[in-house]
Amino acid sequence: PAHPYDRLKTTSTDPVSDIDVTRREAYLSSEEFKEKFGMTKEAFYKLPKWKQNKFKMAVQLF
């Protein structure tokens, strides 16, 4: 299930529990994912792991 970005980011005051914290981005809706990352999930997962992590750090999901 998708969760709002505000509850997934590492600085959230009301974090979602029971998620894989190493894959926070996977819980974003497709729309919100595209808004935050500027690309689709499919394109994101084709990137090298280090680049994925760099993007995730930039949007507080790492």
Rank of each mutant, 00 (worst) to 15 (best):
E31D: 12
L28D: 03
E32S: 05
D20M: 06
D6Q: 01
S17P: 14
T10M: 08
L8R: 00
V59G: 02
A43F: 09
V21G: 09
F62W: 14
E31L: 05
P15G: 07
V21C: 12
I19N: 07
A43E: 15
E31S: 14
K56T: 02
D14E: 08
S30K: 12
P4D: 08
K49M: 12
E42G: 06
K49F: 09
K41W: 07
D18V: 05
E32Y: 02
Y5G: 06
F37Q: 00
S12M: 05
S29C: 10
Q52E: 01
P4E: 07
S12Y: 06
T13I: 12
F44H: 00
T22C: 14
L8Y: 05
A2T: 15
E32H: 02
P1V: 13
K9S: 10
M39I: 06
T10L: 08
K41C: 09
F33H: 00
N53P: 00
T40W: 04
D14G: 04
A58R: 09
T40P: 03
L28S: 02
K54I: 15
R24A: 06
L61E: 05
K49D: 09
D14F: 08
L47H: 01
F37R: 00
W50Y: 08
R7W: 08
T13Y: 08
V59E: 08
T10H: 06
A58C: 15
Y5H: 08
K49R: 11
Q60G: 13
V59K: 12
R24Y: 08
S17L: 15
K46A: 13
K49V: 13
E42I: 10
K46Y: 05
M39P: 00
E25M: 04
P4H: 09
L47M: 12
M39Q: 01
S12L: 07
M39H: 01
F37N: 00
F44I: 00
T11S: 12
M57Y: 09
K49P: 10
P15V: 05
V59F: 10
S12R: 03
Y27L: 04
T22V: 06
A43Q: 14
V16I: 10
K49T: 11
D14H: 09
R24S: 06
F37E: 00
K49W: 09
E31R: 07
K46I: 11
K49I: 13
A26M: 13
Y5K: 08
T22N: 10
T13P: 10
K51L: 15
K54A: 13
V21F: 11
F62D: 15
Y27T: 04
D14Q: 07
K41H: 08
D18L: 08
F33D: 01
Y27H: 07
D18N: 13
F44M: 01
T13L: 13
K9G: 06
K54T: 06
G38V: 02
P4Y: 10
E35K: 06
E42Y: 10
K46F: 09
R24E: 04
K36V: 15
F37H: 01
R24H: 08
P48W: 00
K49L: 14
T11C: 15
R23D: 06
E31A: 12
Q60Y: 15
S29M: 02
R23K: 12
L61M: 14
E35L: 10
Q52V: 01
F33R: 00
P4K: 08
M39A: 00
S17M: 14
T40E: 09
L8M: 05
I19M: 05
A58L: 14
R24P: 08
E25N: 05
D18P: 06
G38F: 06
F62S: 15
T22R: 08
T11A: 05
R23G: 03
A43N: 11
K51A: 14
S17A: 13
E25P: 03
M57A: 08
A2E: 15
Y45Q: 04
K49S: 09
D14V: 02
S12V: 03
